[in-house]
Design a protein around this nucleic acid. Structure first.
Lengths: 147, 147
DNA sequence: TAAATATGATTATCATGGTAATCATATTTG
DNA sequence: CAAATATGATTACCATGATAATCATATTTA
């Protein structure tokens, strides 16, 4: 992440922009601000999650499973693709969710390599409990940092 | 980080917003987009840095040292404060920068606990080499993701 | 000033991100 | 159809974030 408090000055960006005339000082400055803001929000949300014994990554997996109305399960690789995280990370994170009984894994009937992942009832309930607070944390953050 | 590809739908956010009327659907949606965008940019920059044998964190330390015109060194704790990262992370990262001869550490004369951190000539040169590419990566990213 | 508290840095430990390599099974292709 | 290739999942290993505890030294306070 990117927590730098004092961003590079416009002056400094301009100095480098001179060497690379295509670089737009405003858009670089905007990008740096965006990374800082997003990092602060992620940190805030991680704190929220930690108070509920979960993490952003585990939360996103639950969300992705819950959001699939026409399917009762997804492959681990499908979740990794949607959450956009590497498969080894997925393997590890799914294990921790199984340990907490928030999801279950089952063998795929047509592909012996694959694993189907489903939300448990506990997982659904838990998600429903923490989601309002999640949105409310985001909302609070945005109101605080508004100009 | 936050890489979720398909963000929660407005519909879904609205559902939770109903329970928490203070939550503004637009600002929540904007926040989710911001986290995703920033995460993608951070990932892009980490790739850039890895091609140069450095990391975002190590880079930011060099930047902070370089940006202090009236001082030749900063305390480790001052850098941690500016980069907004925990001190144990700072200790570890400074060690790797020393190993690569990009900074030097020296004892503080007035406080025996403290360590002064300075950029080496190699550190200054290296920073000057990678900075233009850094800004240009950001600029490219912003142009790509512009509407 | 002696005791209590605070601070700079570090160590130990844990969580979570990544890539490379591997295993098992599917799929494609010669 | 056998060999080559691709894919789902995992293991091993490394980087980087955090907190708690510790050590040494400063500073405050009783």
């Amino acid at each position: 992440m990117f927590f730098l408090k004092e961003l590079p000055t416009r002056q400094m960006i301009r100095g480098y922009a001179e060497q690379y005339p295509s670089a737009d000082v405003d858009s670089v400055e905007q990008a740096l601000k965006m990374m800082r803001q997003a990092s602060l929000l992620v940190r805030r949300l991680e704190t929220y999650f930690s108070h509920h014994g979960i993490s952003q990554q585990r939360f996103l997996i639950l969300i992705v499973l819950d959001r699939e109305p026409e399917r009762t399960s997804l492959l681990a690789s499908e979740i990794a693709e949607r959450v956009d995280v590497s498969r080894p990370v997925m393997t590890r994170t799914l294990r921790s969710l199984v340990d907490e009984h928030l999801i279950t894994l089952s063998a795929d009937t047509s592909d012996k390599r694959a694993k189907q992942v489903s939300l448990t009832e506990k997982g659904k309930t838990f998600l429903a409990e923490i989601l309002p607070g999640y949105f409310s944390e985001i909302d609070k953050f945005m109101k605080e940092s508004a100009p």
